[in-house]
Amino acid sequence: MVMKINKINYEQFAIDYLEGNLTGEDLKEMKTFLQKNPEVKAELDEMQLFYLEPEDNLVFEGKEALLQEITSTKPKVISLTNRIWIAGVAAMLLIAFCTFIITNKIEPTLEKNYAEEPVQFQKNEPQIDINTTIEKHEIVEENNTKNKLENNQLNNVATKQSRIPTIKKNNKERTIHPSEYVNTNLKKNNPTRINVDEIDLLEEVVNNQPIKSNPTTKKNKTNAPNTAIEKNQNATTNQVVARIDKTQRPNLPEALIPSTIPALDIQIVEEIKNIDQIASIDLVQKESRLEQWGLLPEGSTKRKFKLANFKKSLLPEFASK
């Protein structure tokens, strides 16, 4: 919309009119206004335009004082050779770091799988299937006054040994068949650790077995500890025969399970299981077998061996104390 030019606002169009910059509708409107106002037209026609020229002699003296120190903001350019060197060094460091990580990751894994991780049993299972999961663990439990004393002594020693878990269980002595736990090679290499693990294993086995007690048997054994055959014939309820099937215990390190089980031990277990059916058993033969295991106390005619003796045979520190 073209603004209508009058005496009030003509000044803002006048300079463009004088300089020849007014065009189009504005120029037409301006000419119409000048026709209606000849005094204004005369004023503009006689008006000379004077333009100022800069004075070059006027200069700012001492402009150096206004200058500032130049700070380079351009990024440093790294040559191609230096880039290759830097990349090479970075790659070598990365490889070394990865090698270090991988090496340190494998070692703890092996240690964890075969040595540090304790044998895990599922305690939720109320009972262990004797025929399938336990192949050859014999745990014979007796309440014997003499054995109680030995067991108490053993517990005292076990308490002092922080690495050995407590094994007392209702003040009952547990007699264990040692052949499953004694791995001669492992004992030589690392006897303490392996023995402790095996004791843990034994403890789990004992905990998961429903143990029955027979007070009459206790009396009999207390009164006549040397009549082994008669005691065993009356103490079948105190015998817990277990067999551990190593194939069904994947968490148990392979090294902890005896690879071979002597046929003689299997025979003894079978004989003990069938003690009620076997009327006559060769005590001398059994004691000789126990002697082969190295667990038969000197001068003892007892057929059964005790947990304390078993531990002494396993742990040198127990034997010394």
Binding site: E11, Q12, F13, A14, I15, M47, Q48, L49, F50
Partner: peptide, 15 residues
């Protein structure tokens, strides 16, 4: 617009 007015008046004054 004010600039043009001021300049016009200044030119007129110089004249």
């Amino acid at each position: 617009s004010q600039v043009k007015v001021y300049i016009f008046r200044a030119r007129k004054k110089l004249h």
